[in-house]
Design a protein around this nucleic acid. Structure first.
Lengths: 226, 226
DNA sequence: GCCAGTGCTATAACACTGTTATTGATTCGA
DNA sequence: TCGAATCAATAACAGTGTTATAGCACTGGC
């Protein structure tokens, strides 16, 4: 009996999309987001460029798929740093996890935050996309940051803070993390000082939330050992 | 007497380089750093692409020229915000000037800090480029920031701070500014809240330097009127 | 079992990019 | 005035994203 040749339902078939995505991630890691070539990608997967068009609709669609993949990766980093029972540890580890994600995936990071508004996720309330939707609605990674900041503030301050105030502070924290990491990736930070400066930023922010500097240093030291 | 036709020493001749640079800046503003086309640039200046090769040595050379032009522009913004007699006003205005530069020149800003190490200025100590040279040696704009932070700390703290401490804090300030501005350019900030959040970051940093929140708000209010 | 119909992919072509070799004109120096 | 040199324009090459065409394998109905 002749084997069904290359059936369209062979394992590679529905895997082609994920294989292309994985190869694209590898190429973005190597050449940067703007150095991705459809022909090179197709060559790496043993297919033609048309497969990318039928599966992603073109290069922008492929980039958008990488974009959501990057946010899923970032969310995984945020989840791995979760410690709801210890708010200070939670915030410290999440800030460190953000930097580790950026340094581990500089290609994806530059694609997501590279300074050009490329894509906006179509959330459940995409009908109101023209309005200003809170960021945490669209990006679960930012929601985790808001939660960690809020928990840290509640834990160290007596009164429960205003939710809007928590969002604003979380955005400042995000800005601090993104700025330091971005400068580091762009080559403006001395590699020998980059980690120390990031740690001092963590200290800066956590003490602003009310934590004791010694406790923050303890968490930083414990996190540095892992 | 026949006019000398198109003499190579006509005013356009040595101006061609600056004309190309100006046109390139305009194209980068419109299409972004990665959307710059040598052919379109040459077409805009009525010349051929070869002129770019003889004047800049190729596209990387052109990008590097735009890079140093961007830092000159940023330095001009920093100088326009100088107020050495009032350290707090100096720091506040310089932080606001940084954001204004980034929003006024998003193309150049993305070229300079877009998350990819493209160029490093060949300073006077370029022989030690392999070593970690302090950033303020290469970029006068960052030196101005270090000066403003140091003056603000000296003015509000009794004791003169350690220079290394001033550099570290200035780098954190730079990171905060770059992060917020980068997120704003990338489209992650609600346009209605972006300025307010940046102002709260200014408040955050200046109070850390020892300034009174009311004084910071006064400076922010005065700067908002100009 | 056969045959239209559908869905997907490979090939080839188009317009575009950066880069380079070649050619021609123009200027400078002896 | 003539040789040498400099510089820009033309054309070509390899590469890019995209699209039109054509071919293949599979599905549905008869």
């Amino acid at each position: 009996m002749p084997e069904p040749a290359t059936q369209p339902n062979e394992p590679d078939r529905e895997d082609l999309r994920t294989r292309l995505l994985a190869a694209a991630e590898k190429l973005v890691r190597k050449h940067g987001p703007d150095g991705l070539s459809l022909r090179e990608l197709a060559r790496a997967c043993g297919s033609s460029t048309m497969a990318i068009y039928t599966l992603f609709g073109g290069k922008p669609g492929l980039m958008e798929a990488l974009y959501v993949l990057g946010f899923a990766r970032l969310h995984a980093y945020a989840l791995s740093a979760e410690a709801r029972e210890a708010p200070l540890r939670w915030l410290v580890r999440q800030m460190l996890a953000y930097r580790r994600f950026a340094l581990d995936h500089t290609g994806l990071y530059r694609l997501m935050f590279g300074g050009e508004k490329r894509f906006t996720p179509t959330g459940r309330n995409s009908r109101f996309a023209s309005l200003a939707a809170p960021v945490e609605d669209a990006y679960p990674a930012f929601a985790a940051l808001v939660d960690a900041v809020g928990a840290c503030m509640i834990h160290h301050h007596a009164s429960a803070p205003d939710p809007a105030q928590v969002q604003d502070l979380a955005f400042l924290v995000w800005g601090q993390m993104h700025g330091l990491v971005g400068l580091e990736i762009a080559g403006y930070a001395d590699p020998a000082d980059a980690l120390g400066r990031y740690q001092s930023a963590v200290r800066f922010i956590c003490t602003h939330c009310g934590a004791a500097p010694a406790d923050v240093d303890a968490e930083l030291g414990a996190a540095a050992l892992t």
